[in-house]
């Protein structure tokens, strides 16, 4: 598995797209900090970008990489290597290289602008951590889609749809149900609704750490009690892990039985 991981990692290291992705974050970080020297404000803006873009790029990149390397994968399958190792290796290779682009691309400008001396350092690491989690989650989801669809167009369609659902439509449904059931106590419901969507979960985690919680009134207090305590933090990290483990498990299972 490590060998496959190494090869796909090197392969991506030579790929133009990794560098474009890296340069995009580098530019974004520098521009943000140039326009606004306040680190914690820049973190909020950056959060808006990361929450939307990281999942999108994760899914599209995952699907694209899989379809592009189908021939190589089939070649590997002819060798005496376990299927699980091939796909896990490829998955980890792409997730790690995307996460690295994100960490370095954003980390470098913030380091230069004095992150280490700033009080926002913990918030910043939380932001990078959730960014990495989102990458791992959405690449895993992308592998699920592409393994199940030989047709590239269909695969891309589903990938975009998945992103659209979790980033936009889910919130729409969430909001509608909040408004329809506004006569009932909704704090538990909104807590669960947030835990079930990795994008919402990451957004809430960061916003609460940035002390927007005071805006939330009573609901904010409920959320803060949950996410602010260590048990809430553990539960949300565990639920992000579950969001990685289940899709990974699903595509490994699919790969075992798939007829190439």
């Amino acid at each position: 598995m490590l060998k496959v991981l190494k090869y796909s990692f090197y392969d991506l290291g030579r790929s133009r797209w990794s560098y474009i992705y890296f340069c995009f974050y580098l530019a974004l970080g520098f521009v943000l900090l140039f326009l606004n020297n306040d680190l914690s404000k820049a973190i909020i803006t950056l959060m808006n970008v990361i929450i939307v873009l990281v999942p999108l790029i994760g899914t599209i990149f995952g699907v694209m990489y899989y379809y592009n390397s189908v021939e190589f994968t089939e070649l590997l399958l002819a060798q005496p290597i376990k299927r699980r190792n091939i796909f896990l290796g490829q998955y980890l290779g792409i997730s790690i290289s995307l996460s690295l682009s994100l960490l370095l691309g954003i980390g470098i400008p913030f380091m230069i602008y004095g992150l280490l001396k700033s009080a926002a350092i913990f918030d910043f690491f939380l932001l990078l951590l959730t960014g990495a989690f989102l990458t791992f989650i959405f690449v895993a989801l992308a592998f699920n889609i592409s393994l199940r669809n030989e047709n590239k167009i269909k695969g891309f369609g589903y990938a975009v749809l998945l992103w659209l659902f979790l980033a936009v439509i889910y919130d729409g449904i969430f909001l509608m149900s909040l408004m329809v059931f506004e006569d009932y106590p909704l704090d538990k419901f909104s807590l669960i609704g947030t835990l079930l969507n990795p994008i919402d979960l990451s957004r809430t985690l960061i916003l609460l750490k940035l002390d927007i919680s005071a805006l939330m009134g009573y609901t904010g207090a409920v959320f803060k009690n949950f996410f602010g305590t260590s048990s809430g933090m553990i539960i949300s990290i565990v639920s992000l892990f579950l969001w990685i483990i289940f899709p990974v498990f699903a595509f490994v299972l699919k790969a075992r039985t798939k007829d190439f």
Partner: peptide
């Protein structure tokens, strides 16, 4: 309670 969706794309 809808404030939990603050800064969401939707």
């Amino acid at each position: 309670e809808a404030i939990v969706l603050l800064r969401s794309l939707f």
